[in-house]
Each structure stands twice: as structure tokens, then as C-alpha cells.
Design a protein around this nucleic acid. Structure first.
Lengths: 210, 210
DNA sequence: TTTGGAATATTAACAGTGTTAATTAAATTT
DNA sequence: AAATTTAATTAACACTGTTAATATTCCAAA
């Protein structure tokens, strides 16, 4: 029967419209200005209708956080072409930083705000997208070790170190903590890239040693 | 005249009580549960009285953020006794991590939440405490370079790198992003310390080179 | 085709939030 | 003691997320 199918489609359509309205709001006016009532205004429904499609506001944010990961994935899709794992690592870092700086609101949701994680434990499931990204990082690091580009250590620990640094760079920058360290706004990103380059060079042991 | 003086004291006294009530609330119930009305309940004044002592809620948070820096400073007061700058750097990192993990709410205010920084630019003044901490870090790094403990580079860039990493570690941990990477809760802090140790060892060039 | 029931949407309401204006109470000066 | 300044309060505004009760729309069976 085609009618149940159509209804299903309509349901998804409205969900999509709610998410799009939320995206628009939180990209243009920031996290704190996303309210159920304003979303409702945009999609031209009453506020309570939204609760027929999402359990609560955090579920909306959870979905936006997943959209963020899709965007990030999109950005990284040409990464496999880089065969040198250290170069790939560098590029991964650059992409990560660029994504964070260009999409601070999404970045917030993905790596700073507690809400999506709370929702995750509430739903009792895994942080699939985040874990996938981390696995890619660890695999790349492991490959670097195998091929002698970087010194051998615990790949998990090194993943943590590397991720922490790029996350630290992005989050300190977007939360205005670098204003004294890097007073000119236009120098922030270059300085951050320098830090990343320093990290890659410091990791690199090919050509040194002996 | 002693009366103006007494009044001044009383004014400060109430300010203190407001801040103490805020601290209690946000340490015990977290950031989001600090409301003007609940503060007012605790100090047994009407909500609007608070506006006679603070311009707005963000000003309260700004003051709490400064108290956080005082607490951190307190923690670091025995740091000068460590003469080896690399060991001192390590200890600085450990203290930073410990502070962040033990005082997540203060840490939030100091390094994550935008509010205190917004207030700062609104008041048109500097981030004194933060800058002081950063200066200490850079001085220590510079000393490490001078004395041959670590390779020479731009101290500002290296400060950024080091700070970013420890900030990344703390903020990813407190925002629940390490649950897959480090599934057992009791292993999070040890793993973080490992990352810090890795960083220090990687920086350390004394005894290597030639 | 009309009736009954399910799905969908809306209105009204609750319990909060930060903040301001107007008003009352207290303390100090004249 | 009266006038004036300071301090505190009440009332109100414009929001917030969310739930319960009500109204509307839609589709299937009688």
C-alpha cells in the first residue's frame, strides 16, 4: 500500500525541515539562539508539533552533531589518495583545523557541548561517527610507525595526544583564548598551522636517527 | 568618616555572599543551574537586589572565573622550587590537568565558556590571569631552550602547542569525548598523564643528539 | 457515504529564565 | 524632625522547554 509509504515520507520530510531550520538558526545566530519556538516560526508549525518528531531539544542537537560529522567526512574524502601516511596525517590535521575554524557551531556540537554525548548514553549506543574518525587517526598513526616515519609507541595514547592538540588549538581559538598569545586576528590560523607543522616535524623521525 | 567606610565594607560583604552562593551552586549543581533567583534564595535577598551589586549574570561568572585562576595559582605556588625547567614544565602540566579534572566547573569558566571573555572585551581590559599563566609557560619553555633541554623554536608557538595539548586532554575528558578511546573511567587520568609524559619526553633532547 | 478511530496539529498552561521600571523601606544628612 | 539619598522589593516583560488537553485532519471499515 502506497499510502503508508507516503506518510512515512512526509514524516521524514518534516523532520528534515525541522533540522534545516535548526541548522539555519544555529549557524547564523549561534547555539544559544536556537529555540523550539523560533524553529517553529521558520517551519510555520506550532512549537509543540516539533515534539511529535523529536523527543526533546537535545535530540535535535544530537542530529545536528551527526550532520556535522557528515560535513567533516565530506571534507576528508580525498584523504585516501595521499599514500605517505605522515603527509596524510598532516593533511588530516589541516582539515580538522579548517573544519573547526570554518564551522565553529558544528564543531561545538561535535566536540565541546555535553548534550550530544548525554543523548548518546541516554540512548545507550555508541559514538559511531566520532569513533570512526578516531579509528582513522589511530590507523594512520600505526601506519606511520610501521613504515618508520614516527617512533613506535602506544597508538591509542598517541592518538589521544595528537587529537588533543588539534582540538586544543581549535577550541582555544574559537573560544577567544588566544587573543593575547596571537593578538592579530589574521595570524591566528597561520599560528595554529605552525603548531600543527611543529607537531608533525617533531613526530617525524625519518631521515634523523643515526 | 567611618560610616562611608563601613558601608563600603557591607557592600563588599554582600558581593562576597553573592559570589559564594554562586560558587556553591555551580560547583554542586553545575553551570546551567546557576540562576539569579536561586542565588537570591541562598543569600535571602530578592533577585533584583543582585543587580545592585553586579551589572548582570555574566559579571558574576567573570568574577568566578577569576576565583578559578586564584585557585589554580594556589596550586602552582610550589612550582618555583623546581629548578630543572623541564621537570618544572612537567609539573606545570600535571597541575594543570589535575586542576581541570578536579574542578571541571571552574575550568569551564576559565578556558571553555565564552562569557568571561565577552565580558572582558566589553570592559575593554586584558585577560590578566590567563596571560600571566601563559607568560609563565613561555618563560619556562624559553628557559628549557636556553639550557638545552628542548630544541630551539619560537617560544610563543611552542607555548601554544603545549597549552593546546593539555587543554585538549582536559576538555575532551570532561566533555565525555574519550569514552571509546579510554573505556574505563579510572584509566582516563592515567592515560592523560601518559600523553603528557610522552610530550615531555618528545620535547626532551638532553642526552640525545650526538 | 457515513461513521469511527487513529494520526497529526494546536491552544493553554506550568514552571522556569534574565532583566528593567516603579515603588517601598531604610539609613543618612540637613 | 524633615528632606534626601541609598537599598531592597514587587510587578512586569519577554523569553525558555515541555506537557496535557483539545481540536483538526486523514484513512479504513461498515
Amino acid at each position: 500500500m502506497g499510502i503508508a509509504e507516503r506518510k512515512e515520507k512526509q514524516k521524514l520530510e518534516i523532520r528534515k525541515r525541522i533540522l534545516e531550520a535548526s541548522m539555519k538558526l544555529f549557524v547564523e545566530e549561534g547555539f544559544g539562539n536556537v529555540s523550539i519556538r523560533r524553529i517553529a516560526d521558520i517551519i510555520e508549525y506550532s512549537p509543540t508539533t516539533i515534539y511529535l518528531y523529536f523527543k526533546d531539544k537535545d535530540e535535535i542537537f544530537y542530529n545536528l552533531h551527526e550532520i556535522g560529522f557528515l560535513k567533516m567526512q565530506e571534507m576528508n574524502k580525498d584523504l585516501d589518495e595521499i599514500h605517505n601516511p605522515l603527509l596524510r596525517l598532516h593533511k588530516m590535521g589541516e582539515n580538522y583545523i579548517r573544519f573547526g575554524m570554518e564551522n565553529p557551531e558544528y564543531y561545538d556540537l561535535m566536540f565541546i557541548q555535553p548534550e550530544p554525548m548525554d543523548k548518546l548514553t541516554e540512548m545507550g549506543c555508541e559514538w559511531e561517527n566520532g569513533d570512526a574518525a578516531l579509528t582513522r587517526l589511530r590507523d594512520t598513526l600505526a601506519e606511520c610507525m610501521e613504515k618508520g616515519y614516527i617512533a613506535k609507541t602506544d597508538p591509542t595514547m598517541l592518538s589521544l595526544s595528537v587529537w588533543s592538540m588539534v582540538h586544543g588549538l581549535v577550541s582555544l581559538a574559537t573560544r577567544q583564548r588566544l587573543e593575547k598569545l596571537v593578538p592579530e586576528k589574521e595570524n591566528v590560523v597561520p599560528m595554529i598551522r605552525q603548531s600543527l607543522t611543529w607537531l608533525i616535524n617533531t613526530l617525524d623521525i625519518s631521515g634523523k636517527e643515526k
